[in-house]
C-alpha cells in the first residue's frame, strides 16, 4: 500500500511537462515512504516511446496503455482503468491540475467514492492522512485540508513541483483497457492546438500591454516582440489606444474591456487611469515601464522602470529571450 501512482498527461502523442511534474512529485513521496512510483502513460499507437523519459524522472514502473481508443482523451475508459488499478492498492495518485487532469481526478474519485484534493500547491504525507494546501477565493486565501481518503487523489498545480531527473528502472508494463474502451458515452471527437498560436487575453499567463506612451500604432511592434519573447504572452492595450484605432477593441483591458489577472502583467507606456487599473490590478505580478515617474501605474506595480518604452522594451525583449533560452 505504499506505491504511488502518477498519471502522465499526453496530448496528440506528446508528453506534457505536467506529466513529468506528477512523476517527480510521486518520486518524492515514494522516497519518503519507501514505495514505488508507477507512472501511467496512455495514448494512441506510439505513445510508449515516452516511457524512457518517465523512467528518467523517477518511475520505477511505466504502465503503458497504448490503444487507438486513447488517441484523444477518453475520460470514461481512463476512469475505468485507473479506478480498477488504484483499487488494487496504492497510497496516492498524482494528476496534473490541468483541464484534463481536473476532469480525470474528479472522475476517478467519484468512481471510487473518495474525496480528493484539487489544485494542490503543498502536500505532506503522514501515516493515515495527507495535509494539503490549495488556493481558494480566487487565489486570495490558502486553504489547508486534511485528506483522509486512501488512496489520496491529488491534482497538482503547475509549477508546485518542478520536474527533476532521478533515473529509475522504468520497467514497462502494458496496461489493458477495462471492457470495450470505445463503448463510452462521452467521446472526444477532436483535439486541436489553438489557432495561430494567438493566446486569448483571458487565458494568457503573461500579458504585455501598451498605452499612449508608445506614441504611434507602429510602435506596438515592440510590445508584440516582447510578447513573442515570452512565448506564452498575449498583447493588450488601453482604452485610449483602442479608441484611437491603434489596436482592435477586443484587445482593450480595463473597466469597459477585458478584466484580466495573469501571472505577469507588463504595462508599457501606460499611465494607469482608473479605467485601466480596474481591469488588471489583480494580476499577480505587475511591471510598469513609463517615463513619467509620477504616473499612477507605479503605485499599482510591483516593479517599475522609469524610462522611455522605446529604449527599455528592446532591451527587455533581448533579456527575456536570453533568460528563456537559458532556462
Amino acid at each position: 500500500m505504499t506505491n504511488i501512482l502518477a498519471f502522465s498527461e499526453t496530448r496528440l502523442g506528446e508528453l506534457r511537462r505536467a506529466g513529468l511534474e506528477t512523476v517527480t512529485a510521486a518520486r518524492r513521496v515514494a522516497d519518503a515512504t519507501g514505495g514505488q512510483v508507477h507512472a501511467v502513460l496512455a495514448g494512441g499507437p506510439g505513445i510508449a516511446q515516452h516511457a524512457a523519459k518517465l523512467a528518467a524522472h523517477g518511475a520505477d514502473v511505466v504502465l503503458v496503455l497504448e490503444h487507438d481508443a486513447f488517441a484523444n482523451y477518453n475520460p470514461e475508459a481512463l476512469t475505468a482503468v485507473l479506478a480498477a488499478r488504484l483499487g488494487s492498492g496504492y497510497r496516492a495518485a498524482f494528476f496534473a491540475a490541468s483541464a484534463l487532469g481536473h476532469d480525470l481526478v474528479a472522475r476517478v474519485a467519484a468512481r471510487m467514492k473518495l474525496a480528493y484534493a484539487s489544485d494542490v500547491t503543498e502536500f505532506a504525507f503522514s501515516a493515515d492522512s495527507v495535509a494539503v494546501a490549495h488556493p481558494g477565493y480566487t487565489n486570495k486565501i490558502v486553504q489547508r485540508f486534511v485528506l483522509k481518503a486512501n488512496p489520496a487523489l491529488i491534482s497538482l498545480r503547475a509549477g508546485a513541483v518542478l520536474p527533476a531527473e532521478n533515473a529509475k528502472a522504468g520497467a514497462v508494463e502494458a496496461l489493458a483497457p477495462v471492457g470495450d474502451p470505445t463503448a463510452t458515452r462521452v467521446k472526444v471527437t477532436l483535439t486541436e492546438k489553438a489557432a495561430g498560436g494567438k493566446i486569448d487575453l483571458g487565458e494568457a499567463p503573461v500579458i504585455i500591454a501598451g498605452g499612449r506612451g508608445l506614441k504611434e500604432a507602429a510602435n506596438f511592434k515592440l510590445v508584440e516582440d516582447l510578447a513573442a519573447a515570452f512565448g506564452n504572452a498575449a498583447v493588450g492595450a488601453t482604452r485610449a489606444v483602442t479608441d484611437d484605432g491603434w489596436r482592435p477593441h477586443s484587445d482593450q483591458i480595463g473597466q469597459t474591456g477585458r478584466l484580466v489577472s495573469p501571472d505577469l502583467y507588463v504595462a508599457c507606456g501606460i499611465s494607469g487611469a482608473i479605467q485601466h487599473l480596474a481591469g488588471m490590478r489583480t494580476s499577480k505580478t505587475i511591471v510598469a515601464i513609463n517615463k513619467d515617474k509620477e504616473a499612477p501605474i507605479f503605485k499599482a506595480a510591483d516593479y517599475g522602470i522609469v524610462g522611455d518604452v522605446m529604449d527599455v522594451l528592446p532591451a527587455l525583449t533581448e533579456a527575456v529571450k536570453q533568460a528563456r533560452a537559458g532556462a
Partner: peptide, 13 residues
C-alpha cells in the same frame, strides 16, 4: 473544452 493552448470537441447523449 479549452485546454492549455489547445481545445477539444466532445459529445455525449
Amino acid at each position: 473544452r479549452e485546454l492549455e493552448g489547445a481545445y477539444e470537441l466532445i459529445e455525449c447523449p
